[in-house]
């Protein structure tokens, strides 16, 4: 068991001011909790965590004060109003709803592709969680430093992975399985494999985390405002 500060990933991020973290793996294997643990690390202590398209009342009621929810804006001009350069860590949970590969022509997808190209200018960290990179528009990988973070992926889903990710995920699956067997006292979902640096990370759950945090869209559709919010808008 080693300190995260000794890892290659930490050394890469130590002086970085932007980057894209892609968390992939089958549903309910700990992607959402993992990305939240990571975003709360002191590396990003000077940033507020922005949950895109989460229900604002859910975030206000259940998350610490360094969180806020923002809806993806209708116009790209409004992005600068919701994301603060150098001061935000942006999380796009279940990114298939926003940057889905089958929705590559939608306004939201085009806007976020444009944002990715200037994420370094805005000094933003962006983390996306998705079950399979084939579900995500490839432009998310093309413009910035990408850090691949893996959770277990179902073997059937693995067959449909993008070739560039498939070998990494195969290795990640085996490594995650080995660590689960070797460290049975550690919660199996606490392990995350980083294939950018070939390192295993353990991310203990925050004390405030509950099962409802892992299902923020329970009974909801991502990005849909409630009728009361529509009236306010």
């Amino acid at each position: 068991m080693l300190e995260f500060e000794d890892s290659k990933l930490y050394q890469l991020l130590r002086y970085a001011k932007h980057g894209i973290f892609v968390w992939i793996g089958t549903g309910q294997h700990g992607k959402t909790v993992g990305v939240n643990v990571f975003a709360n690390h002191p590396l990003f202590a000077d940033r507020q965590i922005v949950l895109i398209n989460y229900p604002p009342e859910f975030v206000d009621d259940n998350y610490p004060s360094n969180y806020r929810a923002e809806y993806w804006p209708d116009s790209i001009d409004d992005i600068v109003d919701i994301l603060h350069p150098s001061r935000d860590f942006v999380i796009i949970d279940d990114a298939a709803w926003l940057v889905g590969s089958r929705d590559s022509g939608t306004r939201e997808n085009k806007d976020i592709q444009k944002l990715m190209t200037i994420a370094s200018h805005h000094e933003l960290f962006v983390a996306v969680t998705i079950q399979n990179t084939s579900m995500m528009d490839i432009s998310m990988f093309q413009s910035q430093d990408v850090y691949m973070m893996h959770k277990h992926m179902d073997p059937i889903a693995l067959e449909f992975e993008r070739p560039m990710t498939k070998t990494r995920q195969i290795v990640a699956n085996v490594m995650l399985q080995d660590y689960r067997y070797k460290y049975p006292k550690i919660h199996p979902k606490a392990f995350t494999y980083c294939s950018t640096t070939w390192e295993m990370l353990q991310m203990p759950m925050p004390d405030w985390w509950t099962s409802k945090h892992s299902k923020p869209y329970y009974g909801r559709i991502p990005g849909r405002r409630s009728s009361a919010q529509e009236c306010d808008a």
């Binding site: 995260f4 930490y10 643990v37 990370l201 991310m203 759950m205």
Partner: peptide, 20 residues
């Protein structure tokens, strides 16, 4: 087979209590 432990975040006031 070593692994790196990403620090456990501190509990903030106002957040939901742990229920595990």
């Amino acid at each position: 087979q070593e692994f790196y432990v990403v620090g456990k975040p501190k509990v903030e006031e106002g957040a939901s209590p742990p229920l595990r």
